[in-house]
Every structure is written in structure tokens, then in C-alpha cells.
Design a protein around this nucleic acid. Structure first.
Length: 907
RNA sequence: GGGGAUUUAGCUCAGUUGGCUAGAGCGUACGAUUCACAUUCGUAAGGUCACAGGUUCGAGCCCUGUAAUCCCCACCA
């Protein structure tokens, strides 16, 4: 292939991914289906000790959608973990998924249906299900292609769709167990109901928004009561406050607070419900707040959550007056069939006409909306399937408090426990056809009184079944998507009760912090319930990706960044490096194209580093070819290539070489700690600075003088492998391009520690200090382009004497000479070296001010150090090594100042 | 009402167990230029670490309080 002048990701990425797939490198090394050949009941791999595994499941993206920026972040994080652990030698399994996304997809489909002039009510459930199935099948594949473009090294043959047979099987098995354990019940309760989509939601799916509304005061006249006439002052009516006058037809009572003196003698009396002939009682209940409105509140148990509870306490009838399509039912003829909002207008008009509307007030209150279409949700009385969460939540809390799951960020554990403590029963019925059918059948045979009303049966493809001569019909509802998702780690890892499974629990669950409750909480409850074990050992939560200004991305704001655009423009690696930069667990963080540009630049830098090294390797090979006879040459080559696969067959000869080994070791160690602690941004940063600031700027520059071919190879390999989890494509392209590497980098081995001479490494650090000081001083001198103007003079300095070539090359000074005891020019501000730039006196004089500044600055540092030492407590209590360090620094600064002052006097 | 965060350079963010003379990227200014890379190289400027107390030899970090910004849950006739 060869190295072109710059790295063009578009030319290589898809080929590289295809090569990985063809070589089947994403597949875990250890089989993923439990093995029990000797029928001992345990997995045979346990006995052989092969359980060095690492598993992650991908939060399944919507099967018929496109990936958004959050998916981009998810893949960058999860794939980095998987690739890192693969390089560490673990049998790593990244399990991809696709979500049928029940409600989301249904909304899209229903919209299409409406566009074509149809409604869902023209078809039965089975028909609709197969229609949506086909609709999704047409769209599928997009997101899978996009995951490939992002470089996700997931095991494609294990892709799980949330409606796959094994998923449904597991869901039914779990549901059956829960049904038998009494954790599932059918209840008539108020549920949040969207009249547009005609389905109920779980509490968690409801979006509350603060809105302006009106609070009306309506007079309810006391029903005829003989005692009323006895005193003239006694009231003849009670005024209630309400935001929903149209529901008054469903009122079952008027409640007042037991402590409220105003109404004390009205309790127990009856009032006439306006616009009807009905009468209802006045009751006392804590729910009525004397401070709010008139202090009297109408109770409508069928259409308000609080009123439902009041109704339960007082055994009030629940009369439904709004039907599932949002129109009025069970109301006087004239209102029947109106929509709720039309009815409200009529009711208000009629109340006014009768003089019963006593006041209105503008208020702000929060209103529940459908999170998809924005329609105001109607609390609706419905029979639904509920999960009794009390026991599940209690057990989950125990496991959490037992520290069985580690959270990143750590505070999310407390947040989750807090959530579990207040969790209410979970409505898992949805009235949409697109989903997993609830496997329950209702008895229709009235005569079979001994049989239960509902039975569990897996044959949901049948509309009705017969058991022991009794007929049952299928419940037409489907499961809440989160009910099936809650078992995702179980189904994806092929967990079974019989066999040990080395991939369950997952090592880590990585997902968005926004679905901590909806998903993480439910996976924990259900995972423990089904398997007895927590479903994952660690949880890493990422925050939202915000736009460059820190604003939430939204279509309406037009600030949505499409990850695929950035991948096309800068390459997958650049995107991945860019999106990880500056990001930490659980935080919503801004993201801009700039950081992707920085990532792209790093890829190009690495490319050119490799290009340089390859050219050095080629030159060396050519040289040895010229200097040896044909026969021995071949032998040598064989030898060399064999050695290179063993790697680290190098010897350090020059200081820069020891130094870079030290720095790379340090970097690798840092990356290892960062990965353990999920500090992705830190890992990227240390790699960035090691590759760029250290390897390229210092080591490679020094290698232009001394070419250590074997070391160049070894160190480049180490850096490529270390960066691979974050920039998989460019590192693999380079790996394939280099003449001496073999196989794929994706399956390479994490580099081992490099050997070096620490004294020599430290000497190179001194050289760097000297060179930096030369550069700084040259820049500060008057005039431009000073680099090649002034020579360097040294006195009695073996480090400089021995490394003249290196210093010259790095600092660009034209000459280096011993000044032989006669100092001249400008002294460099280095305490341990007597070095001068051979600058003419007039230039030195112009530099005087800069020198003065320098002396003052060092003086201030010295003062701070001295102040520390004058404090006896510091000397007593601070650790000895710090005190010594301070002493040394004082000595150094004092020496430096006195020398600079001497210099100043010379001028 | 309950819970959780955030506040550090112009911008976006690091700062892990208190040792800091507070860092990075981008941006800005100045300089360089054939020989891997202008997607480059070198140098610099830029900070009252939100505020007020406290603990400590030592606080960006720990404690108490205040302010501002944000998120989640519950409630709102």
C-alpha cells in the first residue's frame, strides 16, 4: 500500500472493517453457548479454568432509525472498552442489538397509515403486527451500517432483535414465573392515557410541563334539607374550585378538610350536582387543602389520581365520563359525544347562565403530556397488568447496598436507591399492536365458575384457545418495551438456569444517564429475580452530548449534529477521539467540531510518524543489502523477521531512547489505570501528548541523528496498540501498511513494559531542559529568526560536551564550543549548567530588561519557598521528602539568582 | 416538597489520596519554513479556582453557610 503524504480515512475505513469481519475477529474466543459435555450440570469451561472473559451488551438502537450523536458516544465508549480488553487477552464479547422500539416505531407507522387515509381500527392486531414488521424490515440495516462505520467491533452473528424468538421465550418464562409468584396482577386503576394514540403509559413515560390554566369556582347548591331553614345564616351552597369543570358529571363527592372550620357543619350533607339531577355527599378528607382555592374540592375518582385515592378511602363510585377516544360518555344528552374540551366550554357557558360560576383565576400548574405527540394525557380508569414492585425493589436495594454493582459516577447508586424506595407498581400493558403480546387469556365461558378468569398461555398467535373444554380469548395488549428490555443481559448472553455462564453478569453496562430509572433500575430488579445475581458488575453512565454552546440538541433548535456527517468529513477515528475528549461520567457536556479536528490531526500525525519510521526501516534494509552478500542477507532477514514477531529485540544506545521507553511505560501505566476507572478522556489525553509532544517532537527528532531501527519498531507498535481502542481504523491501516508487522492489530497483545536505563533517561530530561531554555532565550532576544545566529558556549560541562550533535539538532544553534574559562555573551538561566549564548554585547544590553524580569520572577518563587521553610510547623509536620525538596529548590534558585545578577552586572 | 449535579484561562473542559509554583485542547499574539507531517514546528500572553467563614504546616480539593445555573422525582382542585 505505502504511505501517502497525509492520512485519508475515507480511502481505508470500509475496507479495514470488511477485513476484520472476514477474519471473524469480533467473535469471542471462548464459545458463548454454555458447554456441558459431561452432563455434570456445570459448564465444562469452569473446570478448565477458561473464564477470562469480558462482556458488554449494546443498548439496542431503534431497528428502523438512524444513529444519533448519543449512539456515537455510546459506541466510542463501549468499543474502546471492548478493544482494550481484547488487547489485554480477554475473550471479549460485544453483543449488538436492535430494538423494535414499541411505541416509538408505532407512532411513526401510525402516522404513515394516517397519511394514506387509514386508521388502526380498520385492522386487527395480527394484521397490524405483520404490517409493522414489514415496515421495519424495509428500514432495517441502516443503523447496522452506521455502527460499522463507527467501527463497533461487535459480534454480528449474535445480534439480538427485541422481538426474536428467544427474547419472547424468555419474557414469557419470566412472566409466567412472576404470575405464579403473585407478582403480576390485573387491576382497574387510573393510568396515564394518551387519547390520540389510545394507549396507556407507565409513570416514567409521562412528561410534565408547567402550563397556564384557569381555576374556576363553581357553586354546588345544598340539596333540600329540612334543617336548612332553621337558621337564616346557615349556608345554602358550597363553592368548589376546579380546573376541570367538564368532569363534574363524574363527581362522587365534595371534600373539605376536617380541620376547616368554615365547612365543619356541612360535612355529611348532600349537594346537588349542577346541570344534573344527581346529589353527592360532602365528606371530610385530608386531601382538601384549606389554603387552596375555596378549600372545597370536587372528587372525581375516575379522572384524577388524587381523587381516585380519596374515592378508595371513602368507597366512592367511579363513574367514567370521558371515553378512550377523548369524548364524553355517561353525561346528560346534550354533552354526550362532545370532546372533553368542547364539553368544558359548554359546561362553563351553562354554569354561567345559571349563575353558578362564581369566579375564575389564572394559575400555573403542571400538566401531563404524551412524550411523543404532546397531547394532554387523560387519567383513565382501565384494567391493566401491573407488576407488584415492592419485593423486587426491596431485593434490588439490598444488592445495591451490598455494593454488588459499582457505579460511574458513584453518586448514581444513591439516586437509584432513592428511586427504588418510592417506586410504585408498574403498568406493563400497552394498547398498541407493535410489541410482544401479553400471554394471558380471559375466560369467556360464564358457566365455568370454578375456572380462573385469566390463564397464562404461550400461544399468543391464537385469538382464542380452549382448555379443559373452557374457552378463553387472548388479551389484545402488548408488553411495555421496558419489560422485555429489563431482561436484555439475560437473553443476550444466552443465560440459562442450568449452566454456568462466563459472560453473565456482564462486566459493565454502559448507557445514557437519562435511562437510569427506565432501564438500569428494571434490569437490576429483573436480573436478580430471574438469575439470583445482579446483571452487571459495573455501570458506566454517560451524559447528554450538548452542542458547542452547551445547549441541548433538538430538531426544533436546528443544532443537531449528525455523527455520520463528521465520520464522512474527518473519519471515524477523529469522531471517536473528538467525542471522548473532555468527557466524564454522567455529565452533560458540550461537543464541537473543533475536538474532532484535533482528533483528525492526531491521526494524521500518527500516520506521518509511521511514514517516517517506515522510511528509516527501508533505508536500513537497503544499507544492509548493499553491505552483505546475497546468501547471508536472506538468512539475516529471516532472522530479523522472526525476532520482530517476538518483539522488543532492541538495545538502547542513546539517551533519547532510554527516555522514550520511560515515557511510554508511564503512558501505558496511565492508560491502564484510566481504563479501569473509566477515565476515557484522560486516557486519550495522555496518549495524545505522549505520541505528539514526546514521541514525535523529541524522540523522533533525536532519532534523525541516531537511528535505532529495532527500537523505532517496538515503540511504534506499542503506541499503535495503545491508541487502537480509541482510533481503531488508522492504527489498523498503519499496522497493515508497515513492512514488518503481522496479523491484525485488533488481535495484537497489549505491550509489555519496555526496558531502559533510568539514569540515561534522566540525562535526556536534562538535555530537554537545556534545549528549552535555549529556545526560550532565543525567542526573547531582540530581532527575528535568532535560531541560527548565535552559538552556544559551555564551561566544564560533560553533558553538553558529549551531546553536542543532539543539542545542535534540537535547538538549531549553529555551533557549540567550550569557552575555556573566559565567559562571554548571555548566560542561560540554568542553575546546574554554565551555558552562554554567544550574543554580542549590544544585544545583551537590549536583553537587560528581560533579564531583570526573570530575576524578579525567580525571586518571587524563592520568597514563597522561604516562607514555607520559615514555618516551623511545615518542617515538623510535612513529609520529609517534601521538606527536602523545598530545601533543594531554595538552593537551586539562590544559585541561579546570584549567577543572573552577576551577569546583569557584567552588562 | 424530596433527591442529584455544576460553578477553574476568551471558549470547552481536566485537576484521582490535600503537597499546586493550577493544566490541556481550541482560540489569541509573535516567530520559523525544501529534507515525515501547514492536518507542521517553536515561543509567549492569558486565572482572586463563584462568594463568605472554618479545619490544616499546607485547601481548587475536606467541613459549614450563601449565591447562580441545571437535571430528576413527587405534588399542584
Amino acid at each position: 500500500m505505502g504511505f501517502s503524504k497525509s492520512y485519508e480515512p475515507g480511502e481505508y475505513e470500509s475496507d479495514i472493517y470488511a477485513a476484520w469481519e472476514a477474519a471473524d475477529v469480533f467473535k469471542p474466543k471462548i464459545p458463548t453457548i454454555p458447554v456441558d459435555d459431561d452432563e455434570s450440570g456445570t459448564d465444562d469451561r469452569m473446570e478448565s479454568g477458561e473464564y477470562n472473559t469480558y462482556s458488554i451488551v449494546m443498548p439496542p438502537p431503534n431497528a428502523n432509525g438512524n444513529l444519533h450523536i448519543g449512539h456515537g458516544l455510546t459506541v466510542a465508549l463501549e468499543d474502546a472498552l471492548i478493544r482494550y480488553n481484547r488487547l489485554m487477552g480477554k475473550s471479549s464479547w460485544y453483543i449488538p442489538g436492535a430494538d423494535h422500539a414499541g411505541f416509538e416505531t408505532w407512532v411513526v407507522y401510525e402516522r404513515n397509515l394516517e397519511k394514506q387515509g387509514h386508521t388502526r381500527f380498520e385492522f386487527d392486531r395480527d394484521e397490524l403486527y405483520s404490517r409493522v414488521w414489514n415496515f421495519v424490515a424495509e428500514q432495517r440495516g441502516n443503523m447496522e451500517l452506521q455502527l460499522r462505520a463507527l467501527g463497533a467491533s461487535c459480534s454480528w452473528q449474535d445480534l439480538t432483535f427485541t422481538l426474536d424468538e428467544n427474547v419472547v421465550d424468555q419474557v414469557y418464562t419470566t412472566f409466567e414465573k412472576m404470575w405464579q409468584d403473585g407478582l403480576i396482577y390485573r387491576g382497574e386503576k387510573l393510568v396515564n392515557y394518551c387519547p390520540k394514540h389510545q394507549t396507556a403509559f407507565a409513570d416514567i413515560e409521562v412528561e410534565h410541563k408547567d402550563e397556564k390554566g384557569t381555576l374556576w369556582d363553581i357553586e354546588y347548591k345544598l340539596a333540600d334539607d329540612p334543617s336548612r331553614e332553621s337558621t337564616i345564616s346557615s349556608p345554602t351552597s358550597i363553592i368548589v374550585s376546579t380546573t376541570r369543570p367538564e368532569t363534574l358529571f363524574g363527581d362522587a363527592a365534595v371534600a373539605v378538610n376536617p380541620e376547616d372550620k368554615r365547612y365543619k357543619n356541612l360535612i355529611g350533607k348532600r349537594v346537588k350536582l349542577p346541570l344534573t339531577d344527581k346529589t353527592i355527599p360532602i365528606i371530610k378528607d385530608e386531601h382538601a387543602d384549606p389554603e387552596y382555592g375555596t378549600g372545597a374540592v370536587k372528587i372525581t375518582p375516575a379522572h384524577d389520581f388524587d381523587d381516585f385515592q380519596v374515592g378508595e378511602r371513602h368507597n366512592l363510585p367511579r363513574l367514567q365520563v370521558i371515553a378512550e377516544d377523548g369524548t364524553m360518555v355517561n353525561v346528560p344528552e346534550k354533552y354526550n359525544g362532545l370532546t372533553a374540551s368542547e364539553c368544558r366550554k359548554e359546561v362553563l357557558k351553562d354554569l354561567k347562565r345559571q349563575g353558578l360560576l362564581k369566579g375564575e383565576k389564572k394559575i400555573e400548574h403542571s400538566v401531563a403530556h404524551c412524550y411523543k405527540c404532546g397531547t394532554v394525557l387523560e387519567p383513565m380508569l382501565k384494567e391493566q397488568w401491573f407488576v407488584d414492585v415492592e419485593r423486587l425493589a426491596k431485593v434490588a436495594i439490598e444488592h445495591l447496598e451490598n455494593d454488588e454493582i459499582k457505579f460511574f459516577p458513584a453518586n448514581k447508586k444513591a439516586v437509584l436507591i432513592n428511586y427504588f424506595k418510592g417506586l410504585k407498581d408498574w403498568n406493563i400493558s400497552r394498547q398498541i399492536p407493535w410489541g410482544i403480546a401479553i400471554p394471558m387469556f380471559r375466560k369467556v365461558d360464564e358457566r365455568a365458575t370454578d375456572e380462573p378468569d385469566w390463564i397464562f398461555d404461550r400461544r399468543t398467535h391464537l385469538k382464542e384457545i380452549e382448555k379443559a373444554g373452557v374457552k378463553y380469548v387472548r388479551d389484545e395488549d402488548t408488553f411495555d418495551t421496558w419489560f422485555s428490555s429489563s431482561q436484555w443481559p439475560i437473553v443476550c448472553t444466552n443465560w440459562t438456569p442450568e449452566n454456568y455462564n462466563p459472560y453473565y453478569p456482564l462486566n459493565v453496562m454502559e448507557t445514557g444517564a437519562d435511562i437510569l430509572f427506565a432501564w438500569i433500575a428494571r434490569m437490576i430488579m429483573m436480573g436478580i429475580y430471574v438469575t439470583g445475581e445482579v446483571p452487571f458488575r459495573e455501570v458506566y453512565l454517560h451524559g447528554l452530548v450538548l452542542d458547542g454552546q452547551g445547549k441541548k440538541m433538538s430538531k426544533s433548535k436546528g443544532n443537531v449534529i449528525n455523527p455520520m456527517d463528521l465520520v464522512t468529513k474527518y473519519g471515524s477515528d477523529a469522531f471517536r477521539l473528538g467525542i471522548l475528549r473532555g468527557r466524564s461520567a454522567g455529565m452533560n457536556q458540550a461537543f464541537s467540531e473543533n475536538s474532532v479536528v484535533a482528533g483528525r490531526n492526531l491521526c494524521n500525525k500518527l500516520w506521518n510518524i509511521s511514514r517516517l519510521i517506515q522510511s528509516i526501516v527501508d533505508d536500513a534494509a537497503e544499507e544492509s543489502e548493499n553491505s552483505t552478500s546475497g546468501i547471508t542477507r536472506d538468512n539475516e532477514r529471516d532472522e530479523a523477521s522472526r525476532e520482530s514477531t517476538i518483539s522488543s529485540q532492541y538495545e538502547t544506545l542513546n539517551m533519547g531512547e532510554d527516555w522514550i521507553c520511560r515515557e511510554i511505560n508511564e503512558c501505558l501505566k496511565q492508560v491502564e489505570t484510566d481504563m479501569k476507572a473509566y477515565r476515557f478522556a484522560d486516557a486519550v489525553e495522555i496518549l495524545y501528548s505522549t505520541i505528539w509532544d514526546k514521541y514525535a517532537d523529541w524522540f523522533l527528532e533525536s532519532q534523525k541523528l541516531f537511528k535505532n531501527v529495532e527500537l523505532l519498531k517496538t515503540t511504534l507498535e506499542a503506541l499503535l496498540i495503545a491508541l487502537h481502542p480509541f482510533a481503531p481504523f488508522v492504527t489498523e491501516v498503519i499496522w497493515q501498511n508497515l513492512s514488518w508487522t503481522e496479523g491484525f492489530i485488533i488481535t495484537a497483545k497489549w505491550p509489555s513494559e519496555l526496558e531502559y536505563d533510568p539514569i540515561s533517561a534522566e540525562e535526556f530530561e536534562n538535555i530537554r531542559t537545556i534545549v528549552s531554555e535555549i529556545r526560550t532565550t532565543l525567542q526573547a532576544l531582540p530581532g527575528t529568526n535568532n535560531a541560527n545566529k548565535y552559538g552556544l558556549l559551555y564551561d566544564n560541562d560533560s553533558l553538553v560536551n558529549d551531546n553536542q550533535l543532539l543539542i545542535k539538532a534540537l535547538s538549531k544553534v549553529p555551533t557549540i564550543n567550550s569557552l575555556a574559562g573566559a565567559p562571554r555573551g548571555l548566560r542561560l538561566a540554568l542553575a546546574n549548567h554554565e551555558l552562554y549564548l554567544d550574543v554580542p554585547e549590544n544585544v545583551v544590553k537590549e536583553y537587560r530588561d528581560a533579564l531583570e524580569d526573570r530575576i524578579l520572577a525567580i525571586g518571587r518563587e524563592l520568597d514563597a519557598l522561604n516562607a514555607r521553610m520559615f514555618n516551623p510547623n511545615y518542617v515538623d509536620k510535612a513529609p520529609a521528602h517534601l521538606v527536602k525538596e523545598t530545601r533543594d529548590q531554595i538552593k537551586e534558585k539562590e544559585a541561579l539568582i546570584s549567577r543572573l545578577k552577576a551577569q546583569q552586572e557584567l552588562i
